[in-house]
């Protein structure tokens, strides 16, 4: 019985999360109409009058996530393919810890690196090319976030690629296909649902990531898709709105919970979809 109660802690946590974000969001939406929250193009919680339109934050989140994915998907996927199809066991043994090490780097460290090394570098290069680069460009945050996701994509894809039965590879190789043709025409198509779910998990991870963007992306919520501009994200706003603020019932702090609600549902939906997809895929090969 005690054990059952302990297991229920996990459920209680989820309920607690839901209850706290829902309750505070409810209070928030009594003050700010839902529609102006969802479709407003201005985010200025401290302005007067304050504006709570989530669109600029969504745009910023999407922009950084897209940059991260463009970086991480090819790197992660090709790493996984190389490790599972080409690397000798010794090479595999020595490269896997590199990816695990990268996966274990705390995001605050990556944020420091993004803000102090990558962002100035991009700015320098951009200025050299005559471009107007913000000192807290979306590109810097997105690139470093991409590197953060590489181990996630590669380890998930590695599992999934290894789950493709060897008999399919043998069948293709015995037809006289080269290893790369085998990968492109047989292994990847067979692993596609699994890889799609890996990428969905990566997206969920990217939109929920906080420290890198807090340190390397901007605070000003610009509705912009320019990777060289400064944008803000949902997580940045949650973090900055609630840090150091003691009063709890202002619209400003409550809006953070509304943003939390949006974030929670986005990531939850992505996770559920990804888990479904991967379960279906597993059944297919068992």
């Amino acid at each position: 019985m005690v054990l059952l109660v302990c297991s229920a802690v996990a459920v209680a946590t989820t309920l607690g999360i839901l209850a706290s974000v829902l309750f505070e969001s409810f209070v928030f939406f009594r003050e700010v109409p839902l529609l102006s929250f969802l479709f407003g193009t201005q985010w200025a919680p401290t302005g007067s009058p304050a504006a709570f339109g989530i669109l600029p934050l969504l745009a910023g989140t999407i922009l950084i996530t897209v940059i991260a994915l463009i970086t991480a998907t090819p790197l992660g996927l090709f790493s996984a393919i190389y490790l599972s199809e080409y690397a000798t066991p010794t090479l595999r043994k020595s490269l896997k810890p590199v990816l695990e090490l990268l996966a274990g780097i705390p995001t605050v460290v990556l944020g420091f690196f993004a803000a102090l090394t990558v962002a100035p570098f991009i700015r320098q290069v951009g200025t050299g090319l005559g471009l107007d680069v913000a000192s807290e460009s979306a590109l810097a945050a997105g690139l470093v976030m991409g590197m953060m996701i590489v181990p996630l994509i590669s380890s998930l894809s590695d599992d999934i690629i290894n789950a493709v039965p060897q008999s399919l590879r043998d069948g293709s190789l015995a037809m006289g296909a080269t290893p790369s043709e085998t990968v492109k025409r047989v292994v990847l198509p067979a692993a596609l649902p699994g890889i799609a779910s890996a990428i969905m998990l990566a997206i969920s991870r990217a939109i929920g990531e906080t420290m890198i963007v807090v340190m390397a992306a901007g605070l000003a919520a610009n509705l912009s898709f320019n990777p060289l501009a400064a944008v803000s994200t949902i997580t940045v706003q949650i973090a900055t709105l609630l840090v150091g603020d003691q009063e709890f019932d202002s619209d400003k702090t409550l809006s953070a919970f509304a943003l939390g609600l949006v974030l929670f549902f986005f990531t939850l939906a992505l996770n559920i979809a990804a888990l479904r997809l991967v379960r279906k895929y597993r059944q297919h090969y068992e």
Binding site: I17, T235, N271, I272, L275
Partner: peptide, 23 residues
């Protein structure tokens, strides 16, 4: 409980901060 644990593993950490603050 099981599905819930899997999903909880992927909830962004900042959300746990919101929980801590509110609860």
């Amino acid at each position: 409980i099981e599905v819930n644990i899997n999903n909880l593993a992927a909830v962004p950490s900042i959300i746990f901060g919101l929980l801590g603050l509110a609860v």
